[in-house]
Every structure is written in structure tokens, then in C-alpha cells.
Write a protein that binds this DNA or RNA. Sequence first.
DNA 1: GAATTATTTGACCGTCCGGTTAACTGGTGA
DNA 2: TCACCAGTTAACCGGACGGTCAAATAATTC
Lengths: 201, 201
Amino acid sequence: MGRTSDAREKLLAAALDLIWTSSYGGVSVDDICVRAGVNKGSFYHFFPSKSDLAVAAYEAHWQEKRPAMDAVFSSQNPPLDRLIAWCRCIQEGQSEKHEQYGFVVGCPYANVGSELATQDPKIRAKTQEMLDRGFRYIEAAIADAQRQGLIDVADATAAAKQVSSCVLGLLIQAKIENDPGLLSELEPTMMRLLGAKIVAA
Amino acid sequence: MGRTSDAREKLLAAALDLIWTSSYGGVSVDDICVRAGVNKGSFYHFFPSKSDLAVAAYEAHWQEKRPAMDAVFSSQNPPLDRLIAWCRCIQEGQSEKHEQYGFVVGCPYANVGSELATQDPKIRAKTQEMLDRGFRYIEAAIADAQRQGLIDVADATAAAKQVSSCVLGLLIQAKIENDPGLLSELEPTMMRLLGAKIVAA
DNA sequence: GAATTATTTGACCGTCCGGTTAACTGGTGA
DNA sequence: TCACCAGTTAACCGGACGGTCAAATAATTC
């Protein structure tokens, strides 16, 4: 039925990339179309609006990253190792982006969430959903660590909230200071928050 | 020499308010002028550009809040009390804004910093400066607490970095979830991070 | 190979954007 | 009192914005 196209996927990738390294408001529909090599008419053939594209782009990004996250947070790995491996992923990811663009770009979800939380309910809800998906990995890892007596926390869910907030905060701080080095605090902050009983060398 | 005017101050207040509750990109120069009751020509009489206005607005906001911060972080107060009082200030401030606008608005500096860090060097540097001013209060309080043996930290400056990041992170999270209740985690997160030896009831 | 239909094209729309201009106004200092 | 000048006014600018559309095109199905 009719012709096929990869324009949709190219638009999703271009949108994610441009918005991540700039901001939602700082990127125009034309910018995205140029980067994707697609005409604006095609854009509106696939997406009803700029904000719908953004929502779809985040969903696509998550689906792409999910296997890696599943691997890092696999129940096969010791719970604290999962968290430590995740810290490394963040550090490496941000360092890569920093080399590539000259900027610490931060968390794509939190970036637009913070920018548009008071302006676009659809995007606010989507970013909350994305952050919540990440949160569940952390929560599970912390609950496991608690069960195994590796950490000193009373409420695993509350501790997970604290940990995820700290990660978000460090990413913002690193972005504002444009210093990926701040992210080396990720692991120690986390371990301190959890009262981890054994500190890895 | 010539007439006097409060247009400059009205523009600063309008800009801070609008950008704080929306975003830098989401607020136009016209919006600011309408809110301030000032013509656009006057705007550009006082400020060379929108971003210069923003920088000036943050400086003005800080100067206005500074006496309260000096009081909260006065050396007359026990160090941990300073931090706890600050947490309460944040909670109260955000709850007030939430009632007023229906939204958790977050930290004004971090908001624009996160939005424009990769786009506007002047604003990035200014937000970094603003956050650093807050950081110094925290650092001093933590150093005092350490000296008095109230907490269990090795490096006061590093601990202060962790604390400030967590505060930023919780504010972002509360903004994205639009739930001021999350800010009740401010104090426990902080105390946990500091290994505070006496937990206030 | 014809009919169908998803996709592409590029011109187009009204509006809003940040910023400019030049003429005008009125308070202040001398 | 009056000259000066900081401040005000409103029209204006070119370009960018998000979004629309009708016609053209090409891949797929039968």
C-alpha cells in the first residue's frame, strides 16, 4: 500500500539530537527538517505538531537504549554493581557528547521536562514517564541491595527517589558548569546516600 | 539631568517572574513589556538585548534575596539549623508559587542555566555564578558543622557539592512531577548525605 | 500494467520574533 | 525660567516561526 519511507525515523533522530544539544525552544521545525533531509510537508505528514514529534522522539530514544539498560540492571549482576555500572554509563555518555559538541548536554528527558513542565502538559507528562522508567531500575537495584544487607536504608523506594534526584542534580550542575568531571561524584554520592557498607576500591 | 523612571525595575521584575514561571524561550520581549506596562522602545533604552535583561534580572533577584539568605546562614545559628532553615525556605517558597500559579517552578537560575547552557555563554556563566553564590553558604555551614563534630564528612567542599546537587535535583524532580510534596525529602536527603549524627525530631 | 495510496514537494499563510528608529515629552539642575 | 537630556511613544523592519495545502510522484498490491 503506497510507498515506504525512513523519513519518520530520520526526523525522530534529528529532533532528539538537536533538542538534546540545544533546547526545545531553540530548535525550529525547519532546523529539524534540514538536519533530517526532509521537507516540512513530510514532517507534518508524519507528526501533527512539533511537540508530538518530541514526545515520539523520546519514546524512540528509550526503546533504543532499553536493551543496554536491561543489561546494566540485570538481576544477574550484584545490585551495587548495577548502580556503579550505570554511573559509568552516564559518565561515558556525557564525556562523549562533550567531546563531540563541546558541551555537557545533560539528561535529555530532564532538560525538556524542566524547560516545558509549566508550558506543555503533554511533554511534562511524557518526561515524567521517562524518568519514572529509569527510576524503576534504581528502585529494584536498591531493594535488592537492601535485601542482601549491602546497604543501610530503611525505605528502598525513598532511597531510590533520593538517588535519582541526586543523579539529575549532578547532571544539571555538570551541564551548567560545562564540566563532565563533576560526574565523578556520581558514584560516591550514591554510595554515601545508600550507606553502602563496602566501598569499592 | 532628565526625567527619572522606575521602568527598569518594572522590567526586571516582570522578566524574572515570567521567565521563572515559563521559560526563557517561552517568554517574548513583548510579553515582558506588557507585564511591566512599558513600551518596547523603553525596553531597549534600558537593556541592549533580551539576554542582558535576563542577566540583570537574576542579579537583581539575588540582591533582593541576599539579606534573607544572610540571615538564614548567619554564623550566629548552629550550622545544621542553617541548612534545615534553608530547606524550609525552599519548601515554603515553592509551595507559595505552586498555589499562586498551579506549578512547581523550581530554581530560577538552574532553569535558565539548563535551558541555555549550550546556547548562550553569557547566561550560562551568569547562572553558574548565581549557583556558586548559594554554594558558598552551604559550604561554610558544612565546614562549621564539620569543625563542631556534628557530621561525618571528610571533605566539606565535596560534601557541599553533593548537597547542592541534590537540592537542584529535587527541585527539578518536583517541577517535572509538579508535586511540591517531594521537597519534604530535602532535609532527610541532606542529613543523610552529611552523616548528621543527631537527627532532629 | 493499472489502480491504489503513502509519501514528497515547495510554495504559501498569518503571526510573532528580537530589535530599530525618530520624533516627542516632561522632570531636573543650573 | 529654561535648556538639556533621560525617558517615552508607536510605528516599523526583515526574517523566522509553526503550520497548511494541492499537486506531483513512486512504490506496492492486485
